[in-house]
Design a protein around this nucleic acid. Structure first.
Lengths: 195, 195
DNA sequence: CCTACCGATCGGTAGG
DNA sequence: CCTACCGATCGGTAGG
C-alpha cells in the first residue's frame, strides 16, 4: 500500500509560511532561520525542499501573476459585452485575487524588486502586460463614449492604484466581505469614469 | 573669520543619498558600505555624522509626515470654504509633496515598517491621524450633500491609495507636470465622489 | 531532516 | 575621515 500523499506538500507549506514572513518583514529582512523556526525545523533542512530563498519569491510572484491574468481573461472573455461591464468584472476579479491571498498579493506588489535578473525584467514585462489590459479596455470605452477620462493610461494607473492598496488594509475578519469590497470599489471607480 | 557653512551639510547629503538607495533597493537590503561608497567615503566614516542606520530612516519618515501635515493644514485652513474645494486643495498639496520628493515619499510609504519600537507605533499613529483628516473632510462633505459615497472611511482609503501609487510611476522628466498630475487626479477622484 | 560548518557580509566601534 | 577590527548573522552546503 502506498502511504497517502500529505494534504499539503512541505514545499507548499514553506511557500505559504515564507509568504507571510516576506509580507510582514520584507524579503530582505526575513532570514531562512526565521522561516525554518516558523516551520519547526532547522535552517539547513529547508534546502532539501527548495533550492534557494529567491526561488520561493520567484514562485510567489509569478504564481500571482498567473492568477491575475486568469481573472482578467475570464472577466473579458465576452468581447461583445459593454466595456463598463467588462471593466467592472475585471475589477471584481482583481479584488477577488487580492482578498483570497492578500499576503501573496502584498509580496507580488512590493517584493518583486528583490528578484535578480533576468526574472526581475520578466516580471516587470508581465506586470506591464497586465496593466495594458486595463489600459486597452478603458481606451475602448473612451472611444465608444461609454467612459470619460482625459487619458486612458492615467485612468488605468489610478484605477489599479486604488485596488492595489487593498492588501495593506484588508482583514479577512473585517465587516466588509470580499464581494462587497469589490462591488464598492467598482462603483466608486466607475461612477468617476462613467459619464 | 568663520569659514562659510557648506551649502548642504554632510548629514543632509547622507540622508539624501540613503533615501535614494532605500527607495531603489529597500532599507534592509541597503548596506552602510553601499551608502558610504555612493558618498565617496569609507563605511566607518558615516558614524561621525549619524548614530545609526535606523536614525536616517527615522528622520526621513517623520520629516515627510511633517510635510504632509503642513500641506493638509494649509489646504484646509479656510474652514468656511466648500468641502469640495478643501478636498481638492488637500489632494493637490499631497501630490505636491509626493512629486517634490518622490524618493523620500516612497520610503515614507513603504519602509516605515523597518522602524523599531516605539518609533514604529508613533509613525503609524501619525499616519492614522493624517488619514483621519481626509476621512473627516469627506464625512463632512457627505453630511452636507456636497459629496456622495457609501462610506467616508472607504472613500478616504481609496482616494489616498490612488494618490500614493504616484511615486512608483512618477518621473520628474515625464510629460505631465506635478500641477497637471495633481489636477487630473483631483478631477478623476472628485468626479467620482461629487454627485 | 539534523549537525556542523563554510565564506561573506552585516552594523557598528576604537583609536588615531 | 581612515584603518583595522569586533561579534553576529547571513544564505547555503556536506555528510550522514
Amino acid at each position: 500500500m502506498m502511504p497517502s500523499a500529505p494534504a499539503r506538500s512541505r514545499k507548499t507549506q514553506i511557500d505559504h509560511t515564507a509568504t507571510a514572513l516576506f509580507r510582514a518583514r520584507g524579503y530582505a529582512a526575513t532570514s531562512m532561520r526565521e522561516l525554518a523556526t516558523a516551520l519547526g525545523l532547522e535552517a539547513g533542512s529547508l534546502y532539501s525542499h527548495i533550492k534557494s530563498k529567491e526561488e520561493i519569491l520567484h514562485r510567489v510572484c509569478f504564481g500571482l501573476a498567473d492568477e491575475f491574468f486568469a481573472g482578467f481573461d475570464s472577466a473579458t472573455a465576452d468581447a461583445a459585452a459593454p466595456v463598463a461591464t467588462q471593466l467592472r468584472q475585471a475589477i471584481e476579479a482583481h479584488v477577488r485575487v487580492l482578498t483570497r491571498d492578500s499576503a501573496a498579493s502584498a509580496v507580488f506588489l512590493h517584493e518583486w524588486r528583490h528578484l535578480s535578473e533576468p526574472a526581475r525584467t520578466e516580471f516587470l514585462a508581465l506586470r506591464d502586460r497586465y496593466e495594458a489590459g486595463f489600459r486597452t479596455l478603458i481606451a475602448r470605452g473612451l472611444a465608444t463614449g461609454e467612459l470619460h477620462a482625459p487619458d486612458a493610461a492615467f485612468a488605468a494607473l489610478t484605477l489599479l492604484a486604488s485596488l492595489n492598496w487593498l492588501p495593506s488594509w484588508y482583514r479577512p475578519d473585517g465587516k466588509l466581505s470580499p464581494d462587497e469590497i469589490a462591488h464598492r470599489l467598482a462603483e466608486q471607480l466607475l461612477s468617476g469614469l462613467a459619464g
